[in-house]
């Protein structure tokens, strides 16, 4: 015969078990949230650093200003800070222009937009000397097709070939002032310079040309 009203568990114990289960689930969900929050913080910190990322491919110093000429010493550096080329020359004029060619790099995800830029020191001219008559710098750091200013970076064979190809396209588009070829589409020049009304580059002071990964170029005192 079946027992009527058999022994039943205490409702309090059941409630406690349910409560404990919810508490445990909530706790692990919360820990998961904290963990994903940590990942987001790491990502944002990396991104913030990346936005500030910079290279210094060129430094220069005005040696003298005499008779309507500027004499300057220019040194170019690879990514490890090793000097790869040097030049000292006088140019007619009173304001020195350091021209940097910026070549766009597009990631596979968003090929339409450049997400970073390669900086190639391009030429030097002045306020009196047209850019077309300036001193072109490409040959100074051309190491068999590879731009030595981008040396010092751990590149795979494929990446190295891509940089060589980018440099060749940049040189081609820069040469003769022709509109950018398809390979160099989006490339532009940034000729940073002193402005007489503000202040001139001081003789004997070294300035560095800082190239930002987002494409901006700055001159800063070294």
């Amino acid at each position: 015969m079946r027992r009527q009203g058999g022994r039943r568990g205490s409702p309090l114990v059941g409630a406690l078990i349910i409560l404990a289960s919810f508490a445990a689930a909530g706790y692990f969900w919360f820990r998961g949230g904290v963990s994903s929050q940590r990942q987001r913080i790491t990502y944002l910190e990396d991104l913030s650093s990346r936005l500030r990322a910079e290279t210094v491919p060129l430094k220069f110093m005005v040696v003298s200003r005499d008779g309507g000429e500027i004499r300057a010493r220019v040194r170019m550096y690879d990514l490890a800070g090793r000097e790869v080329a040097a030049l000292e020359k006088a140019w007619p004029g009173s304001e020195l222009y350091i021209d940097i060619l910026l070549f766009p790099i597009r990631s596979g995800k968003d090929a339409g937009h450049a997400d970073s830029w390669l900086a190639f020191p391009y030429r030097i001219f002045t306020d009196k000397l047209p850019a077309a008559s300036g001193s072109v710098l490409f040959d100074a750091y051309d190491g068999g097709g590879f731009p030595e200013v981008l040396d010092g970076m751990d590149l795979s064979a494929g990446e190295r070939a891509a940089v060589i190809s980018a440099f060749a396209a940049a040189r081609k588009s820069a040469g003769g002032g022709s509109p950018a070829t398809e390979g160099a589409k989006g490339a532009f020049g940034s000729a940073v310079h002193e402005v007489s009304e503000l202040s001139r580059f001081e003789v004997g002071i070294v300035y560095r040309v800082v190239c930002r990964i987002k494409g901006g170029v700055e001159i800063m005192e070294d």
Binding site: F188, G189, A191, E194, I219
Partner: peptide
């Protein structure tokens, strides 16, 4: 941080 001139340029058509 820095104050200078910047002449950005492109070959145009």
């Amino acid at each position: 941080r820095s104050l200078y001139g910047d002449a950005v340029h492109r070959a145009v058509k």
